[in-house]
Amino acid sequence: MKNFFYLFFKSFLDVVPLVSVLLFFQIFVIGESFQHPLEYLLGLFLVVFGLFLFMRGLEAGLFPLGESMAHSFAAKGNIWWLLIFAASIGYATTIAEPALIAIANKAEIITEGKLSAFTLRNTVAIGVASGIAVGTMRIILGHPVHYYVITGYTLVMIMTLFAPNEIIGLAYDLAGVTTSTVTVPLVTALGVGLASSIAGRNPLVDGFGLIAFAAPTPMITVMAYGIAVL
């Protein structure tokens, strides 16, 4: 019970900077009092409680499970299954991202149906899946991460030259939302777990960097989709 309160307090401390910024601007810059202080307090409590549950869920469930599966795949020694797993995790977590769903729906409305929300979500998810698979291959081969990232963004720049103007901003934004709540914990656990189970790999050097692969590839696939339909 003591541990529960300590961890809850830690979650509260994590939210303090954000609350301080909001309070400072509301009171000292805008100079207005809060219209519904009780509702705001309840909302703040829910944010802290939600963050507390999310962090405990990651520590107890997602991180150990992701790492344990990465260890098991490395022990099994079948690279193809590992790559299929990495791509599937990338695809499934991206398709579940609430921010992606919101932006894709908005894009369909704004373009009056020229861009389909369903196709857009799948295009982004396929981009992330291929990026995570390439990133996993990079960990297995032990190549430096920056070679891949530089190549990825060079391809993004080349695609930008050919993509219609209407899709460029959307493609760049969609790359950002793919690395959100659901994707990051599982993909990080996969990368760190894999790097710590392959001989000669350092979890710090080789394990991190997998998330970086989830950004340029969806930009490329979404711009390709834009070239095809706009």
Partner: peptide, 26 residues
């Protein structure tokens, strides 16, 4: 939204790796 992630994890854990979940209570 989380169902596809769970489906992928459980499929690979049980069908490919053929292992039970480590510390299922956790």
């Amino acid at each position: 939204d989380v169902a596809p992630v769970l489906a992928v994890v459980l499929f690979f854990q049980f069908a490919v790796l053929k292992q039970s979940l480590p510390n299922p209570k956790k």
